[in-house]
């Protein structure tokens, strides 16, 4: 019996530590899962407006959370339009005009391609663990998966969203649902992540539905068709020179 106990104890202890995973640790794991050194992805964005449903395709390259480059490939009207984000600056390039245009001011508030996302939202890529203090709430079943529910409060007073609630798949450490709140506590946006697939050893949601909760409509769906992590992306992809290429 003692022998059995001595074998089991470490296991029990280990299990205990698993159970006692802290909110911070979960968040770190989520960040680790969701952010990579470099990411290349091919995606479709489905925008529903009052008149029609439109699908836009794009290829994106990202490095860390600071720099990202997107090129639209379809439909014909948007083909060749490029978007480059470096820290707090955002540039657009459009082949028909051959112009690089910096997006600033009121333009940042506008929706990207008619979606429920604004340019500001595009700028808003952060490491959650770095920006928020997490508290664990009661677990929930979401989308038939057991989830941790984390309440995130902004560490600093200059984050766009001062509070988030995030549901993290316990097994895969992938966020499945996120609510973004205003300082007042009013829910502004929600994200529903689904089609969680294992890619090169990490679980990743291939579909996201963004919804501006104040706006009418059904939100915007983003579907990732192809994604690869930590690949070699030449540095020039993240300079303004890439826009004109």
């Amino acid at each position: 019996m003692k022998k059995i106990l001595s074998i089991l104890l470490p296991i029990l202890l280990f299990a205990g530590t698993i159970c006692a995973i802290t909110a911070e640790e979960i968040l770190a794991k989520v960040d680790e899962n969701m952010n990579a050194g470099t990411v290349k992805s091919t995606a479709r964005m489905i925008v529903e407006t009052r008149r029609a449903t439109r699908t836009m395709s794009s290829v994106s390259y990202a490095k860390g959370t600071d720099t990202a480059f997107t090129e639209y490939t379809a439909p014909a009207r948007e083909k060749g339009t490029k978007m480059l984000k470096i820290k707090d600056d955002l540039w657009l390039y459009n082949p028909s005009t051959d112009r690089v245009i910096q997006i600033s001011g009121n333009m940042l508030k506008q929706s990207v391609m008619g979606s429920d996302l604004s340019y500001e939202d595009f700028m808003e890529e952060i490491e959650l663990a770095e920006a928020y203090i997490a508290t664990m709430l009661e677990d929930k079943i979401y989308d038939e998966r057991r989830c941790y529910v984390l309440d995130l409060m902004a560490k600093t007073e200059n984050l766009a969203y001062s509070r988030r609630v995030i549901y993290v798949d316990k097994e895969r450490m992938v966020p499945l649902y996120q609510e973004l709140y205003a300082k007042s506590g009013k829910k502004l946006k929600t994200m529903r992540l689904s089609k969680v697939t294992k890619i090169k050893g990490r679980w990743y949601p291939l579909q996201v539905v963004f919804k501006d909760e104040l706006k009418s409509g059904n939100g915007t769906t983003m579907i990732i068709d192809e994604i690869s992590f930590d690949i070699d992306i030449p540095d020039h992809y993240f300079t303004k020179a890439v826009l004109r290429k």
């Binding site: 925008v47 008149r51 009207r77 339009t81 657009l92 459009n94 028909s96 005009t97 051959d98 391609m113």
Partner: peptide
Amino acid sequence: TLHGAMSFQN
């Protein structure tokens, strides 16, 4: 555009 997509013109 009418659909909300980005539009450029010189």
